[in-house]
Amino acid sequence: MLNFLLRRVAIALPTVILISIFVFGLQKLLPGDPVLAMAGEERDPEVIEFLREKYRLNDPVPVQYLAWVKGALTGDLGISLRTNQPVTELIGQKLPVTIQLAVMALIFAMVIGIPAGILSAVKKGTVTDYVANVVALSGLSIPNFWLGIMLILLVAVNWQLLPASGYVPPSEDLWLSIKTMLMPAFVLGTALAATLMRHTRSAMLGVLKSDYVRTARAKGLAERRVILRHAFRNALTPIVTLTALLFGELIAGAVLTEQIFTIPGFGKLVVDAVFNRDYAVVQGIVLVTALGFIVMNILADAAYFVLNPRLRKQ
């Protein structure tokens, strides 16, 4: 297992290096000289020169890149222009909020998507299957920010059942925290539930045709047992892998969800940074998200390794 993980990390290294080059290169896309923007209206040549030295802009680009990587490796992703806080600290503050949202969304997605996928596969070709497929495709087509707006209108404004926006840390009031996050998590989980449903259905359809399921049925086992113990357990491997890979979608979806529900998380941080031209924060977020995706990929492979006995024996 350790060898397997080490091999996966080694394979991911070139990708990590390329991501760092890409993230560093982002600031080179900026039109004009960044120092001129920082120097204020007076644009004193001495101040400009000081800033150039401070940000090492007089150095050749590869030297600038190496200095940036050195900083990133020690957790220094720069300082936010807006708040004057270190970027790493800002991300560290906001990330737990988004993780809470993402975990709750994933629970919603799994609770809705997996049973719907199983049911749809078992009842293939029936009205249930058709309805599940239509709902799933609608879930994939609905813009989640619009769904959020409509839910606020109905559930919060008209029916006044749940708070319309905001965030309460679980340490402060667990129940209120969950209540506040229910709507955003549902909104974020909808598209994922649809994806999970479609993949579960497809995995189950493959497994239901297999010999061991036919054998289990021939042995006279109850249909429920055949489906849950024999078929679903074997269909679970690709589903678990997919769930880990949905991390990227969760983070991207969180950007809009947090914006609509005014949740002070990772997604809101990126939007605020974009509008305040806080490029160090944007770069930091892209880097952290990409690294998070790679880690989730490795974990998905590890889960595949653990769940698949044939792979373990190799």
């Binding site: 990227g248 990126v270 998200t289 990409a290 995706f293």
Partner: peptide, 14 residues
């Protein structure tokens, strides 16, 4: 490795 929308937002921002 960079989620689609995050990449699009970052590029659009820059």
């Amino acid at each position: 490795a960079v989620p689609f929308l995050i990449l699009a937002i970052a590029l659009a921002a820059f």
